[in-house]
Design a protein around this nucleic acid. Structure first.
Lengths: 165, 165
DNA sequence: AACTATTCGTAGAAAATTCAACTTCTTAGG
DNA sequence: CCTAAGAAGTTGAATTTTCTACGAATAGTT
């Protein structure tokens, strides 16, 4: 305890965070929340949420504009249950539809409709502009590269850990 | 359009994201989600959510273990309505209590109870360890410093923008 | 003093998310 | 072929979050 190099926690000898670490962590958290809030806000005029948008992106980039529910859930990092509800909502909004899978009769595809595709084309530029304005353009290309390099291992480790359990 | 230096969007001439930009952005989003998921998971054994925890932290660091509802909402970046419901739940869990404000009879304080304080002391070391394991320790001190330096202006700009509207 | 603006916080309904079954179908073993 | 184990996806209830309106107190104006 006497050789401790870091600030002690309140009444403990646990490995606390240094000032720098704590600040980095807090900043990361805050950027997350603020950014999510702002992106969500920028999408509102189009009647979409971030979740809606991500699903549209994934489907529009997919072969045949379709993805199995499970794959789409994995791609968008949400539970199958959540995705199911989400797709139901988007289906009644006419953005996607469900189609049965031939090769596996348990399976369903989420398929982008023409209306969904058109919505994408309309909204994407605005969304991209929003990402630029609030995030990309605030950083130099070097910072962006560093950020990516730093964060990629973090994401990878978390993805691996997520598999287990 | 012929002088465009960036990849064009599907059927548009909008300013798309470069490969590097897109990847950095995606990584940031993924880290957010995966990290939130994991932190939440690590707190579950203690019966707390991240939101619970953040509120406990803010109160425990505050003068007299208390904060006005509005200030606490601002500190934790959530709406007053959400905080109000949240505090109601935490109140029935015995972690916090509400107290009237003398100087402004509209106002209420959220106050950390002894049980809340004790919970903090128990949980904090585990949570800190979690933050370390999944985030801090994956980065070098230089990376951490860069991250902070890069993200702080982003957060600040977003905070400013949030004020308006 | 009276009137209007605003701020503080809550309440309840609506929407979204989580959680725990549950159904159907596939796959692997015997 | 038959059965057990597991995967795909949905469902509905419980929980959480958002949205909108509201009541009470303060602050600013005339």
């Amino acid at each position: 305890m006497e050789t401790e190099t870091q600030t002690a926690g309140p009444g403990t000898d646990a490995p606390w965070l240094t000032e720098a670490e704590q600040c980095a962590w807090r900043t990361h958290l805050d950027v997350n929340r603020l950014l999510t809030y702002q992106m969500e806000r920028d999408l509102q005029p189009f009647g979409l949420t971030m979740n809606d948008y991500e699903i549209l992106v994934n489907l529009s980039e997919a072969e045949d504009r379709r993805l199995r529910m499970t794959d789409l859930a994995a791609a968008t990092l949400q539970s199958k249950s959540r995705l199911s509800h989400q797709v139901t909502r988007m289906e009644s909004a006419g953005l996607v539809k469900r189609e049965h899978c031939e090769s596996d009769r348990r399976g369903l595809f989420a398929v982008l409709t023409d209306h969904g595709m058109e919505t994408m084309r309309t909204v994407a530029p605005h969304h991209v502009a929003s990402v630029r304005r609030h995030f990309i353009d605030m950083l130099t290309p070097e910072q962006l590269a560093q950020l990516r390099a730093s964060l990629t291992p973090v994401a990878d480790q978390l993805r691996r850990r997520r598999g287990k359990n």
